[in-house]
């Protein structure tokens, strides 16, 4: 793969790679660093990329593995909650979080890593189950199970939040 091909094939994936890293690490700067690190690694091995059949799936898989390493390192380095550790918003912050999209984003961010990665690959990126299975190194069936669990958890939380809002309005 020459630099022109690298530009067109890898650069077009940069947004997807960034979103995947951000979803996994839950930190914009860390995601940025991860994409930079990956792009440098891929650039060094660009000659081998010609042998890759599905460049998107291969690159996404490499990104996920790199992020998993980062998460592992963060856990090893400190027993205290890592910098990337996500803190659930308290009720006050939740009510402040007025935009709907932000609220859902927050709900997804609270899912376990595998579930939030899978739900975003499917519902945000619109990827096939087989591709997600390749990237996450699990079976297609396991992908479907995790996807279903993730969606159901979100549904429960949305419904309970709605119930809470309705109760508040009724009391008010």
């Amino acid at each position: 793969m020459n630099s022109k091909q690298f530009n067109t094939q890898i650069l077009t994936l940069s947004d997807k790679l960034f979103r995947l890293a951000k979803s996994m690490l839950r930190n914009t700067e860390a995601a940025q660093d991860a994409v930079q690190e990956l792009s440098m690694k891929l650039w060094e091995k660009r000659k081998n990329l010609d042998e890759v059949e599905n460049v998107q799936a291969f690159t996404m898989k490499a990104m996920r593995n790199l992020c998993l390493d980062t998460i592992r390192q963060q856990k090893d380095e400190s027993e205290l909650p890592a910098e990337f550790e996500f803190h659930e918003l308290n009720p006050y912050q939740q009510t402040e979080h007025k935009d709907l999209a932000g609220r859902v984003k927050n709900l997804i961010d609270n899912l376990p890593e595998l579930q939030r990665t899978i739900i975003r690959m499917r519902d945000v990126e619109g990827m096939e189950i087989a591709e997600i299975a390749f990237i996450t190194s699990i079976t297609e069936n396991a992908v479907t199970v995790n996807l279903s669990r993730a969606r159901q958890k979100i549904r429960e939380r949305i419904l309970s939040e709605q119930k809470h809002v309705e109760e508040t309005i009724w009391k008010g």
């Binding site: 690298f6 940069s14 960034f18 979103r19 994409v35 999209a101 519902d123 990126e125």
Partner: peptide, 24 residues
């Protein structure tokens, strides 16, 4: 509604400009 709107919103998020420069 929020759920499906959010998916569309999230897909709009792009990598910071400096990043695309660093990619290649």
């Amino acid at each position: 509604r929020a759920l499906f709107v959010a998916f569309g919103e999230e897909k709009k998020e792009t990598a910071p400009i400096s990043l695309s420069g660093a990619l290649v």
